[in-house]
């Protein structure tokens, strides 16, 4: 269980990215965070694995205090949390296989990786991860030869290699076209349902949210302005919609 209490994040320049955010995520939940760009979705996800350190507040994950973890605890926590990025963040000129295998490095002792070739068991695991996301035939291609959607699947396969207990997806489909967006979210949905893995995903297209999100939190200017399930999101009134997306936002799909 992930418990977030009074989380606040203030950047060095004084910008307040998150203000007093509290919520709880149960094991195996699929939580979608919505909001405009700059509403604090990204800083929130980043606080959860401490890519960005929170300014104040508590984050407790299965009894572990994330803000207080020291370097070695933090590495251990991070390797149990997979992360998927908007721009994929693959090593572009390495092969797909190498990229996926790098997801396993968190389990390799740092000194060992100086000489270590990847183990056979890890390679088999990597093939399984690629099969899972539907691109086992791309293993030997260079990452930059793949389309955006395929690159994001490599990103997911890499996260699966970590054997994570939770996956954070920061705008995973924002640089993909709608068809690919559905297949990527489908991948995440099946991981969530088949493996009972917790997934926290930020999205900003409402139609995707309505299709995939069992539970939604809406952020605006770093404050939680909406909490509900997929039913609530479908029945969102114009007024509530403007609470999340601002006065000038127009509803495109109804």
């Amino acid at each position: 269980m992930l418990q977030i209490e009074n989380l606040t994040k203030i950047y060095d320049d004084g910008t307040e990215a998150l203000t007093d955010v509290s919520f709880t995520v149960e094991e195996g939940e699929f939580l979608v965070i919505i909001g405009l760009s700059g509403s604090g979705k990204s800083p929130l996800l980043r606080c959860l694995n401490r890519l960005g350190a929170p300014t104040a507040g508590r984050i407790s994950w299965n009894g572990r205090d994330i803000p207080a973890a020291d370097q070695s605890d933090l590495r251990e926590i991070r390797r149990e949390i997979g992360m998927i990025f908007q721009h994929f963040n693959l090593v572009k000129r390495s092969t797909v296989m190498t990229n996926v295998l790098s997801g396993r490095l968190g389990y390799t002792p740092p000194a060992w990786s100086l000489i270590n070739r990847f183990r056979k068991a890890d390679k088999e695991r990597a093939i399984r991860a690629l099969e899972r996301v539907g691109i086992p035939d791309k293993a030997d291609n260079r990452a930059d030869e793949l389309s955006g959607g395929q690159q994001q699947r490599v990103g997911i396969a890499r996260a699966l290699m970590q054997d994570p207990k939770m996956i954070l997806a920061d705008e995973p489909v924002a640089s993909l076209d709608p068809v690919l967006a559905h297949s990527i979210l489908g991948n995440l949905e099946s991981i969530n349902q088949e493996d009972k893995m917790t997934v926290i995903c930020s999205l900003h297209f409402l139609d995707l949210v309505q299709r995939y999100a069992p539970r939604v939190i809406g952020l605006r200017d770093g404050v939680i302005v909406f909490e509900g399930d997929s039913q609530d999101i479908r029945q969102l009134s114009d007024e509530r919609f403007k609470d999340i997306y601002g006065e000038e936002a127009e509803r495109l799909s109804a």
């Binding site: 890519l51 590495r75 390797r79 949390i81 992360m83 990025f85 790098s102 490095l105 890499r158 970590q162």
Partner: peptide, 29 residues
């Protein structure tokens, strides 16, 4: 790219592993 460093942090890589597997292969070119 800074995203590369973020990704390797998120994977739980140590500083040395980040340099060895992510940064140096790209920077050397």
């Amino acid at each position: 790219d800074k995203g590369q460093l973020e990704a390797s942090n998120a994977l739980g890589l140590s500083w040395f592993q980040t340099m060895r597997y992510v940064v140096m292969p790209q920077a050397l070119r």
